[in-house]
Design a protein around this nucleic acid. Sequence first.
DNA 1: GTCTATATGGCGATAGAC
DNA 2: GTCTATCGCCATATAGAC
Lengths: 213, 213
Amino acid sequence: MSTEEVITMENRILEAAKQVFVRKGYEATKMGDVAAEAGIGRTALHYYYRTKEMLFDAIFDQLMGDLLPNLGVIMNEDLPFLEKLPRIVEQYVKTLQKNPLLPIFVISELQRDPEHIYQSVLKDPARVEPIIHLRTQIQNEMEKGLLKKMPLIYTASTLVSLVVFPALVRKPFTAVFMDGDAEKYEAFLQERIPFVTDIMIRLLTPDDHIQHK
Amino acid sequence: MSTEEVITMENRILEAAKQVFVRKGYEATKMGDVAAEAGIGRTALHYYYRTKEMLFDAIFDQLMGDLLPNLGVIMNEDLPFLEKLPRIVEQYVKTLQKNPLLPIFVISELQRDPEHIYQSVLKDPARVEPIIHLRTQIQNEMEKGLLKKMPLIYTASTLVSLVVFPALVRKPFTAVFMDGDAEKYEAFLQERIPFVTDIMIRLLTPDDHIQHK
DNA sequence: GTCTATATGGCGATAGAC
DNA sequence: GTCTATCGCCATATAGAC
């Protein structure tokens, strides 16, 4: 599947397009911007990709793929959910740190053209399966009393909110809480991993295991 | 401050502009879109607002103001933080429900032109004061041992993540978890208020008050 | 004060030169 | 296969009519 990174014009363009589209969003990106980033003329770009939409489609799937790297592997491991959880959070946070602009890009695209995202995720079973598997596991463990019973959306929304949102508001939070020191904020995101894990564990541990009141 | 809502052409345009800018974002909004929404000719709009930027500036502050309505009042009340918290969460969630598209609009603008947001928030002391006051209160109560000690950003990021993110991903979450039933999702956001409050309270209650291990 | 005809510029796309 | 000259459209902006 990996064709050893040949440095063709195509690849240079795709790399440039990824950068620019993610940084500025679809609407604000002009073909000229991508051309400049790739170091070619504005109209020359049209030889390789006849329309803006085609160029965008070419990079979109790759970008989506960046978001679920080793995550699928972890989700499929044969461990109780509460033991998987720390590794899921860690992997999730680190993936978002490696792709700092991706969350806002996805959110924006979700607004501009929701179907596009849905299709991209749904068309590849490798992207859906781990999630389905995890959902089934959670529901099973709730049945067995290993996890506190609650509608799945409570679990999902809490986990995703806690992990994704701080990455999404990186810029303003860095400005407000870190005096603009970007590295300090990245360090915070790291330190925060066990903190988030802890919240989730407390949330999902059945009452009879911890509570006493 | 409220000049009794005169229905002038100006007001119609501002109302139209708010709608369209929030729905489509700055880049994707064309002057013609706003004109159509206001029911006037495309070029006629330029009489009232010479440039797109000027029109945008005219509505931007109003939009920001929508986000902090009664929230300031609550923040300034003279109650222990843990008792304020339920009301803050409730007010916050309800404000975001009344302005469903605002969160994503703000996030997008934050990417496009961060300074603009900062200025808008900072220039009005009424918008900053309650936050400063709340911050001071939290720090005081942590000193006194009424709240568990932790860096402020942990408290802030957790609260804001839990409240804002689910509103931000309304669309996809409704599609995935509610079979597209928008009302069910809004109901979920409501039910979720005590759930979020609970997480925050557990997070901030000092160990010696609840733990026994 | 309200609106329109027209100018100006930029962007995406095509046809065709090297 | 690689790139450029050029077209045509659409959006913003202005000058000026009613």
